[in-house]
Design a protein around this nucleic acid. Structure first.
Lengths: 212, 212
DNA sequence: GTCTATACTTTGATAGAC
DNA sequence: GTCTATCAAAGTATAGAC
C-alpha cells in the first residue's frame, strides 16, 4: 500500500531480522515486498550493502522509539524495565520465537566481515545507549553509573533474546528482566537510601535530543 | 598436523565464529583446513548441515570446558565471575574483536531457518546452564535461584559480546562482568548475611556429570 | 519508474579417475 | 582417501525496452 521504496525497506528489515543479512536474497526481498526487481537497483544503486545499511539504521531507530516509548509510558523506572522485558518476551512468543532484536543477527554477521555495515550497527547501539542512559539519569541514577547500567540492561536483553530464540523459550527474557530490575535497584540504592520512592521518574522526562 | 577430519572441524569452527554459518563457503573451509575437497564429503556425507551440527556441538563443548575451567580455578565465586568476563574481554581485544562466543552468530542465523542446527545450539546452551547452575549451587546459591542466575550471567556475557564486537570496544564485556558480580552478590546476600565469606566455594566443587 | 531477460559469480554438491 | 573436473542452482548485479 505504501511507496515501493518503503515496502522494500520494510520487507528487508523483516527478512534480515529472521534470516540475517547474508541469508536473505535480493530476489526474496522483491518477492516479499511485492516490488518490481528493477526498482530495487533503481532505489538502491549501491546494491545489497546500501540496502543493508539503510535497513540497519531504519530498524534500529524504529526499535529505539518502540522501546523508549514503552519506557516513557511507565510510571517509574522499575515498572519501565519490567514493561520492556515483559513486552519483548510476549512478542517473542507471539512470533514463534522469530522477532527479537531487529539487528543483532546482522550485527554478528558483519562484525568482522563488512566494515560499513558494522559501523551502522555500532551507531545504532550507541544511540540506544545514549537514549537509555539519559532516562536512567532522569530517574535518579548517577551520571557516572548510567552508562554502565544501560549497557548491562541491554546486554541482558540481547543475551536473553539469543537464548530465547535458540531454545524457543521466552521465559529467559522474563528472567533477564528480573535480573535487570535487581541491577536497577542496586544502582538506585547507591544514590538514595529510600528505594521505595527512589525509582520514581519525573512524569515527563526531558527526551534527550537525538544526535543525528 | 592433525587428522584431516579434525582440521576440517577446527577450521570450520573458526570461520563460523567470525563469519557465521551461511557466510562461510565449503571451498573456503577446505582451503583454510588445507584439506582435499573430496575429503569434505567423504567425512561429512550429510554436507554442510552435518558439518555445521558437529561444529556447533564440538565448539560448544570446547568453550564450556574453557569457561568452566577458568571458573573452577578461581578461589571463590566472585573471583570466578571476574576471571571469566575479564578473560573474555582480553580475548576479544587480542583477536581484533573477532573471537567471542563460538556459536552465537550461528544460533541467530539458524534459529528460524534450520531446525536441526537450531536444536544443536539449544542443546549447547542448555548444557552451559546446567554446568553453571551446578557451580552456583556449590557456591551457596539456593537451587531455586541458581538456574535464573546463570541464565542472567550468560545473557550479560552474550549481550556484551554482541556490543563488544559491533562497537569494537571490549570495555562492554568488562562492565557486564561488574554487573554480573553485582547479581551474584545479591543472590549470595539472599542466603547468607555475611557476604564476606559467603562467596567462598568449596575448594573442589563436585563437577556435575555431563549428560551426554 | 517498471519490467523482463540475462550476464556473471559463487554456492553446495557429485562423478569418476587414481 | 585424495584429487580434479564439473554440475545445477542460487547469488548479486546489469542492460535495455517500455
Amino acid at each position: 500500500m505504501g511507496k515501493t521504496r518503503e515496502r522494500i525497506v520494510d520487507a528487508s528489515a523483516e527478512l534480515f531480522r529472521r534470516q540475517g543479512y547474508i541469508g536473505t536474497g535480493m530476489k526474496q526481498i522483491v518477492a516479499a515486498a511485492d516490488a518490481p526487481f528493477g526498482s530495487l537497483y533503481h532505489f538502491f544503486p549501491g546494491g545489497k550493502e546500501q540496502l543493508g545499511a539503510e535497513v540497519i539504521r531504519h530498524a534500529g531507530r524504529y526499535y529505539e522509539e518502540l522501546v523508549m516509548g514503552i519506557w516513557d509510558a511507565a510510571p517509574d523506572l522499575t515498572s519501565a524495565i519490567d514493561a520492556v522485558f515483559s513486552g519483548a518476551a510476549e512478542v517473542l512468543r507471539q512470533t514463534d520465537y522469530a522477532d527479537a532484536c531487529p539487528i543483532a543477527t546482522i550485527a554478528l554477521e558483519v562484525a568482522s566481515t563488512n566494515e560499513p555495515l558494522r559501523e551502522a550497527t555500532a551507531d545504532v547501539f550507541e544511540s540506544w545507549f545514549v537514549q537509555g542512559a539519559a532516562r536512567l539519569e532522569a530517574a535518579g541514577i548517577k551520571r557516572a553509573d548510567a552508562r554502565d547500567l544501560i549497557v548491562a540492561l541491554l546486554s541482558l536483553l540481547e543475551g536473553a533474546f539469543l537464548f530465547g530464540r535458540a531454545t524457543r523459550d521466552a521465559v529467559h527474557v522474563e528472567r533477564a528482566g528480573q535480573a535487570a530490575a535487581a541491577l536497577v535497584r542496586d544502582a538506585l540504592g547507591r544514590v538514595n537510601g529510600s528505594p521505595g520512592r527512589a525509582g520514581r521518574t519525573r512524569r515527563r522526562p526531558t527526551p534527550p535530543r537525538r544526535t543525528r
